[in-house]
């Protein structure tokens, strides 16, 4: 792909499985599929432990995105759809997952997934997704106590960041680091609308601002925008961030600075929180079902 046609917003898709685990030796194989507006993830658990996952872009067709994500997670594992004991669908396209046994909202799934990823001390989870942003307060079991969502506006979402990566011809994966490479923090661009922010950024570039400085101004605006959402609910410690933007150090560092809090870090991929939560729900539901049958 030439520089002119390169899609700077396009992040790397990937799959992973734990070769040390054998799916034949387990009692329960549960799965979760998170069909988001921008990305889809599938997670497979063996007796509640992470075995495999995939992360890819959501296409124009939710059912196919769910199938593709699950097939990719199962690649080279020897598993087929028939081996999954229970599957929960979540995310924007959760009602369109053809092979799911139940649909559960991404709010409950992120709380449950976040509880596993960051531990039971996490009380506030900020999910910065592709086209929405959610603040979730949860208890020590990962049960939702309070949530607030903004899915009407692209400001403060991953899609907004993709728009900026494309505008500035900077790879989406480099945005965070580049935005931190400025001598002085510039004032934030418009934080209320991505369309206005994009026009403002074009003017700043014409005025001679460097790409790094414009990125810093946008990351700062995004952090500021999300802080106002967090403040509406009230941040309780410990605090963690999930979703694609959690991988953008430019937003995370500025967010932590504004909140005067450090977010928890995890060994898990931050984008799989929803699918992981869904797979944990699936495990609990299949066990509940078995108990009922045994009675």
């Amino acid at each position: 792909m030439t520089e002119k046609t390169k899609e700077f917003w396009r992040w790397k898709e990937y799959n992973w499985h734990d070769e040390a685990k054998d799916p034949k030796d387990v009692e329960t194989i549960s799965a979760g599929v998170d069909v988001g507006s921008v990305s889809s993830q599938a997670v497979i658990l063996l007796d509640g432990e992470l075995y495999a996952y995939s992360n890819m872009r959501t296409g124009s067709d939710s059912p196919n995105s769910a199938i593709n994500a699950m097939n990719w997670a199962m690649e080279n594992t020897g598993l087929t759809m028939d081996d999954l004991h229970y599957t929960v669908g979540t995310g924007y396209g959760r009602v369109n997952v053809p092979f799911s046994d139940r649909a559960i909202t991404e709010i409950a799934c992120h709380a449950r997934g976040g509880n596993t990823m960051y531990g039971p001390t996490v009380r506030t989870i900020l999910d910065m997704g592709g086209q929405d942003c959610k603040v979730i307060l949860c208890d020590e079991r990962g049960k939702v106590k309070n949530f607030l969502m903004n899915d009407k506006c692209a400001a403060g979402t991953g899609r907004g960041m993709e728009v900026f990566a494309d505008l500035l011809a900077v790879s989406i994966e480099e945005v965070g680091e580049l935005s931190l490479d400025v001598e002085e923090e510039p004032p934030p661009v418009s934080s209320t609308c991505v369309v206005f922010a994009k026009s403002e950024a074009s003017s700043l570039l014409r005025d001679g601002w460097s790409k790094k400085r414009v990125l810093a101004a946008y990351c700062s605006a995004m952090a500021h925008r999300v802080v106002s959402l967090l403040e509406r609910v009230g941040v309780e410690k410990d605090f963690a961030i999930t979703g694609g933007i959690a991988k953008n150090s430019g937003v995370v560092v500025r967010l932590e600075r504004e909140l005067k809090l450090t977010s928890l870090k995890s060994k898990y991929d931050t984008q799989i929180a929803g699918a992981l939560g869904a797979a944990l729900f699936a495990k609990a539901l299949v066990e509940k079902q078995r108990k009922k049958v045994a009675q």
Binding site: V144, L148, C153
Partner: peptide, 14 residues
């Protein structure tokens, strides 16, 4: 659980 339905946009919080 406290469920907040609505949105925040340039014109305010609803």
């Amino acid at each position: 659980m406290k469920a907040n339905y609505g949105y925040m946009d340039g014109s305010g919080e609803f």
